[in-house]
Write a protein that binds this DNA or RNA. Structure first.
Lengths: 152, 152
DNA sequence: TCGAATTAGTGGCATATGCCACTTTCGGCG
DNA sequence: CGCCGAAAGTGGCATATGCCACTAATTCGA
């Protein structure tokens, strides 16, 4: 029963499953703003940084650099963020919100608060904080597969 | 300052962030099999069901039905799963593993075990079980947004 | 100072997910 | 019966993510 009933033992599967569920909830809440949960998080991350470089954002969100580039496109296209090269290192591309983007973020934060409050009312703020702490702990683990082929 | 420190307060963002991290870890472990973590979970879910209908799988995985359809395609294309109409209700499409799919799943389970073991060795089996329990609890919540403002 | 190694991004390709608009079947109901 | 509304999937469209191969800009060592 433990394994036979749907692989409830796989930490990864369980995590993704819940992520889909919660993702839809937050997405619904943000819908009026036209932003998805991911975009909202990305805009926020940009807003709290000091014209962060793409690499810095990717690292903070534990996201692949190229994935970040892709995800950023619609936001640039819609005029919420803009990029510019770093003064000292032309390889570096920095990102910042446009006034329009800041306004959109402010708007979205109001919507986000509703979902956040609702969620914490259901599960309890304590419990939520504990869950986030555990998740952050997991995200910080230096996971490494046992060297598959030490060959040579 | 509660929000200015990187939005660590957003349950959804934290969850996705960790999902990306853990997802890559499991994906790396499964790489030799050519399967992604999601496909692995899907194959497993199919294997434990009795020729489950698409709707049943989608519900079990808390996944959108159409999303499931999309995700299933590469697996059908590669000959790991096959579908057939339900005898009594032609609207229903049932899914099952092919012998090749079962073999691939068996192969993947060995790889998965390594990642699973490794992860639990790092965070502790107890802790992992507790995390999964909490995640399942969250996934089971009947989240609902406070009736949208009829505005005006 | 020049070329190898490294770093930061980009583009292409493939899967992951969702929503919406349809189409096909069913299950009632008058 | 025959029509309507519900149920189960499909296809199209758009974003989310990753990996790989490549390019451009820097850094470093001989």
């Amino acid at each position: 029963m433990s394994e036979a009933d749907g692989f409830s033992r796989c930490n990864n599967a369980t995590l993704r499953r819940t992520a889909r569920r919660l993702g839809r909830f937050y997405d619904d809440a943000l819908a009026p703003s036209g932003l998805k949960g991911t975009q909202f998080g990305l805009l926020f991350q940009i807003s709290v940084g000091a014209d962060p470089a793409m690499g810095a954002i990717a690292e903070a969100l534990i996201m692949d650099l190229s994935a970040l580039g892709h995800t950023l496109k619609p936001l640039v296209r819609d005029g919420y963020v803009e990029t510019f090269p770093d003064k000292d290192d032309r390889r570096v591309k920095r990102v910042r919100l446009t006034p329009s983007g800041q306004a959109k973020l402010d708007e979205a934060i109001k919507l986000w608060s509703v979902a956040q409050r609702q969620f914490e009312a259901m599960i309890g703020a304590e419990q939520a904080a504990k869950l986030r702490a555990t998740l952050d702990e997991v995200a910080a683990l230096k996971l490494e597969l046992p060297a598959a082929t030490p060959s040579s």
